[in-house]
């Protein structure tokens, strides 16, 4: 009866408003106020050098003018730079992935005893807490300029990523397979090889390929702080205002990253 009434529109002029996204008006307007206040605070405290920024547009013109056409003349430098980047990325991936397996086992609560688990987690947290570029400067400071620092950096970077995800994968395995292996009388290592590794293998290969791809990207970057590879070449080109050469390097980086992304995606699809 009542519903019939409303449907026939007996009461004219009823208002309807979309219920607000956040129900509590205090929180709603509070959030808006906080956002505005934050923007004001941030912009007013940040040191913008407006005069220097104003020179930006003409400079940008000059830079892009200088960048075209990109110069591939110094092919030798390009080749050695990229080769070194690739070597760094590849070796770091191999090392990192190899080390990740035991660390992942250590950091998986279901297969590691508590003290070992804590050690494994700590290793992962330590290797994840810094941006690879920061790690790279520290290694450059410790072991000197060159690809060695790059390899160390990216190995740590790989461990942080691969071991963490692998450990999570191990924690989610089907425990029945492990129990089956325990019930046939297999020891710890055999249980790992039969009951655990087959289950995480596709993930492991996928992660390794993904990590190779990430390491290739990162290897271009760690070079900027002196850890070897094409990044150093790029940094120098910028420093010497060789914008056409810098642009050529950038184009190459983009091309290589696209190829490597495609390849790693393809391999990951193949393994399942």
């Amino acid at each position: 009866m009542t519903s019939g009434n409303t449907a026939s529109g007996a009461q004219p002029g009823r208002v309807w408003k979309k219920p607000p996204f956040i129900a509590n008006p205090w929180i709603r307007y509070g959030l808006v106020a906080i956002t505005l206040a934050y923007l004001y605070w941030a912009f007013s405290t940040l040191p913008f050098d407006w005069q220097r920024i104003a020179e930006g547009l003409p400079r940008a013109g000059k830079i892009f003018g200088g960048a075209f056409p990109p110069s591939f003349e110094r092919g030798g430098l390009l080749w050695t730079g990229f080769k070194e980047s690739f070597q760094i990325a590849f070796l770091a991936t191999m090392l990192g992935v190899l080390l990740s397996v035991p660390i992942a086992v250590m950091a998986a609560r279901n297969v590691a005893p508590l003290p070992v688990y804590i050690l494994g987690r700590t290793l992962i947290i330590v290797s994840r807490s810094f941006h690879p570029v920061i790690v790279a400067i520290l290694f450059v400071a410790a072991v000197g300029f060159g690809p060695m620092a790059g390899i160390l950096t990216l190995t740590l970077y790989s461990i942080g990523f691969v071991a963490k995800l692998l450990a999570e994968e191990i924690e989610e395995i089907d425990w029945g397979q492990v129990e089956a292996m325990r019930s046939v009388g297999a020891g710890y290592m055999k249980i790992l090889v039969y009951g655990v590794f087959p289950q995480i293998m596709p993930r492991q290969i996928g992660l390794s390929m993904y990590q190779l791809d990430s390491n290739l990207r990162a290897s271009a970057v760690v070079g900027i702080v002196g850890a070897g590879g094409i990044g150093g070449t790029l940094m120098n080109a910028f420093g010497r205002y060789d914008y056409d050469f810098a642009f050529a390097i950038l184009l190459m980086i983009i091309a290589i990253i696209l190829v490597s992304e495609g390849l790693s995606g393809w391999v990951r699809k193949k393994v399942w």
Partner: peptide, 25 residues
């Protein structure tokens, strides 16, 4: 999307420092 993703933040920074000078911008 592709050109944005393929160039690392720090390389973008290198470029913008060259254009606008060092600083937060």
């Amino acid at each position: 999307l592709v050109s944005s993703r393929s160039v690392n933040t720090i390389i973008w920074a290198l470029l913008f420092v060259a254009i606008f000078g060092p600083g937060v911008l």
